[in-house]
Amino acid sequence: MSAAGHISSLGPAEAELDGPPDPEGQKRGWSGYLLLLPGALWLLLFFVVPTVTLVATSLYDPSGSLQLGYQMTGHWQNYVDALRDYGPQFVRSLIYALIATIACIVLGFPLAYAIAFKAGRWKNLMLVAVIAPFFTSFLVRTLSWQYILGDNEALVSVLRALHVLGPEGYLLATPFAVVTGLTYNFLPFMVLPLYASLEKIDPRLIEAGTDLYASPFTTFRTVTLPLAMPGLVAGTLLTFIPAAGDYINSELLGNPRTRMIGNEIQDLFGAGDYPTAAALSVTLMAAIVVLVFVYVRRAGTEELV
């Protein structure tokens, strides 16, 4: 449950009190089911049923169309065709999402650490600052990056003057721009769970490491990092998953050769090729489920859900 639990720190009025409720505070009987029913029905009808429908759609005969109707023929060939045609976009999505996730860890860790241990009475203000940019529309923020990375703007000029970029060098419409956008847009999803984990660490444990003549690096590796692991796992999933399925950054900041799997799924639905689009969607979900499973196993955190 921890990944889900961390997201709650998005809420400004987070519960300050800790500790599980006394089991005796729980009521028995059917009233629990009654409270659960409306929400569970909504999830069943609009999450479970659609997922089944999506899998079914991915097996329709691709010669049908939206107007003429589709035939359910168990057409597994859709998957073979989809992967043959869109394999590169698939791999690219996973690579971009991976780089963006690593960048989020590199940027997010110092920030989360600073908020948890060094911010003092500015802690809450800094937390608000982490969520605040979040509230300006995702698309408007990404368009803002389009401007910042633009060919005739300050950043490119400075990099050209410093010879980081060649005289004709540019940033916009490159894989770099797409990954920058992904990193930027999903950074809060890394910072918040990391902060939630770090905040629970007793600072005296870190001091003890130093007192016992461990170098700052050893203390970090053997004390801080293992204790921050649940947050790191949750943050990684919360950045990687949306980043792998995103197409906004690729469309607004990239070029035709940076297209990700999301772009293709969206366009295929737009063009009315439902079976192929559905097959790609199911494959993306399957890939993510597998990755999540392997990652959570490796990281040794079974408390995720």
């Binding site: 999450f47 949306p242 399925g245 969607s281 199911v282 979900m285 993510i288």
Partner: peptide, 17 residues
């Protein structure tokens, strides 16, 4: 689960439904 589903997948499932 819905929080762990990429938006594009959730959107396509609903559309399929």
């Amino acid at each position: 689960l819905p929080m762990a589903t990429p938006e594009i997948v959730m959107g396509s499932s609903l559309l399929a439904l």
